[in-house]
Simulated scan of single mutants.
Amino acid sequence: MATSRRRGRAAGPSRSFSERALDYAGSAKNLAGCVAAAGGLGLFFVGVVGVPEWPFVVGALYAIGALVAPPPRRPTGALPPPRDPQTLRADLTAHDRRFLGQLPPDVDAAYRKVTQDLRDLLDRPALLQTGSPDTFVVERMVVDYLPTSVEAYLELPRAFADSHLVDGRLTARELLLEQLTLLATAAEDVTTSAARDASQRLAVQSRFLAERFGPTSGDLNLGDS
């Protein structure tokens, strides 16, 4: 069945000629063309360009100015929404299916330490406040930092990864162990930070209840007749 639009092109709202003209009037291309055309008029007024030629010169300079001006920037796409804890746990499970069984024992243990620390956090979603720096770090660790490190290691032949120094310092295997240690430390730091915030809320509630119902409070006199 024939259609009036080419495949693969999304239909957008049609815009009137006047709307498109107003957009162009305020564009960088029109501004550059006007500046160049004004220069052509200047050449006419000082006598460099004669009477028969000046309209063509002005028009040509406007076209050149509009042509060399940069096009308007297209708006960038919106950032993806943050992932919820359930989605992040599914991401970790997908990482396990890809990576476990391919890592040497010491790297496998370090990898499992990171993922267990992250799962412990994701099991308590109340600790991860929406939009907080801690929540952002956990998400980036799951979707970017952890898989990127492991994937880079697994791309290498095992003998090369275990014997060749990278930048004359460590082997690829040692570098991965170093990175996994850093990620585990970061996960522990996030846990401590998030738990500290929750502990502070508990302490505030404790002080409130002590002031409200403690023995020194004068608000309750239940024993008085």
Rank of each mutant, 00 (worst) to 15 (best):
N221W: 14
P71Y: 11
T87Q: 09
G42Y: 14
G168L: 04
L165Y: 03
A198M: 07
R20G: 05
S14G: 10
A159E: 15
T93M: 05
P157W: 00
A28T: 04
V204N: 08
S27E: 01
G65A: 00
V190I: 14
K29I: 04
A90M: 06
R158K: 14
L122Y: 03
S199K: 07
A69I: 08
S132M: 00
V204Q: 15
F99M: 04
R5F: 12
D123S: 06
P104R: 07
F160C: 01
S193E: 14
F56S: 11
A110D: 11
T191H: 12
Q200N: 07
A109T: 06
Y145T: 03
V190A: 02
A161T: 00
E139N: 08
V138Q: 00
F208E: 14
S193L: 04
G33T: 04
A187C: 05
V35A: 11
M141R: 02
K29R: 15
A126I: 13
P147C: 07
S132A: 02
T185A: 13
A90I: 00
V137Q: 09
V143L: 07
V137N: 08
L183N: 02
F56I: 14
T135Q: 03
E178S: 11
P105Q: 08
G131S: 05
G47S: 13
A11L: 14
R112N: 03
S4W: 12
A37V: 01
Q102K: 13
K113E: 12
A109I: 02
Q179P: 00
Q205P: 03
E188A: 14
D108A: 04
L165E: 05
V166E: 15
R112P: 03
T191Y: 11
R89L: 04
R158T: 13
A109M: 02
E174G: 15
A172H: 12
A161N: 00
T185S: 12
L100V: 08
L61P: 01
L177Y: 12
V137T: 09
V204R: 06
L176H: 03
G59N: 04
T135E: 02
C34V: 15
L202D: 11
V58W: 06
D134W: 02
R97H: 07
P55K: 13
M141I: 08
L154N: 06
F17V: 15
S193A: 09
P82D: 01
L156P: 01
A194S: 07
R74Y: 06
A36N: 04
K29S: 11
A159D: 15
L202A: 09
R112A: 03
F17T: 15
V150K: 02
T185M: 15
P72M: 06
P13N: 10
S132E: 01
A195V: 04
A21Q: 09
V190E: 09
G168R: 05
A21M: 08
T135F: 05
R9L: 15
P133S: 00
L22M: 06
L92A: 03
S217P: 01
E19Q: 06
A28S: 03
N221G: 09
P52G: 04
R169L: 13
V137C: 05
V58I: 14
A198D: 09
P75I: 00
N221A: 10
P13G: 12
F136E: 14
Q129N: 03
G8S: 14
R15M: 14
L165G: 01
L41V: 05
D167L: 12
A159P: 01
P71T: 04
A187S: 11
G8A: 15
H164I: 04
L182I: 04
F213V: 11
F44W: 12
